[in-house]
Design a protein around this nucleic acid. Structure first.
Length: 132
DNA sequence: GAATTGACGGGGC
DNA sequence: AGCCCCGCCAATT
């Protein structure tokens, strides 16, 4: 219906807003952006939102900073890697972003709270816990 | 409505 | 590392 379409536009806008927080030199994954968006966001929806970008809108949004969880680029023939390298992002020999170094840790707590977004769970703690 | 398709991801093995 | 299976959800056919 008309209303679900309007809701989707808002969801896409939330996704775009989250993506705009990714600093140059970092990348985020579709899943991480979905986690930050919270409330109905899903990794596939993030992909949908980016696939929907007009050429004009794409110039205003750092869409290139979204890669999959392995650091691999999902677009084809769009020079995404070149742009990321120009931003200082390193790739491994398999053509994937070195996620340990460049994966964005998520928005700051105050920004997330102020705009109704979620924090990214702390991965260091998760790794520590898994040791025991 | 049902089935299929995606710029996806987690968990198990 | 890989592979497989399954969940997810909007859009399309």
């Amino acid at each position: 219906s008309v209303w679900t379409s309007a809701a989707m536009i808002n969801l896409y806008e939330r996704i775009y807003l989250a993506i705009m927080q990714i600093p140059a030199g970092n990348v985020s994954s579709y899943g991480d952006i979905a986690t930050i968006g919270g409330n109905g966001c899903d990794a596939r929806i993030v992909g949908d939102a980016l696939a929907d970008l007009s050429a004009k809108r794409a110039l205003l949004l750092p869409w290139q900073r979204v890669v999959n969880r392995e650091g691999a680029i999902s677009t084809r023939g769009l020079q995404q890697r070149d742009v990321l390298e120009a931003e200082g992002v390193a790739f491994d020999t398999q053509g994937r972003v070195v996620m340990q170094r460049h994966r964005w840790k998520g928005p700051h707590a105050d920004w997330a709270e102020a705009h109704g977004f979620q924090m990214l769970p702390n991965r260091e703690d998760a790794e520590q816990l898994s040791l025991f």
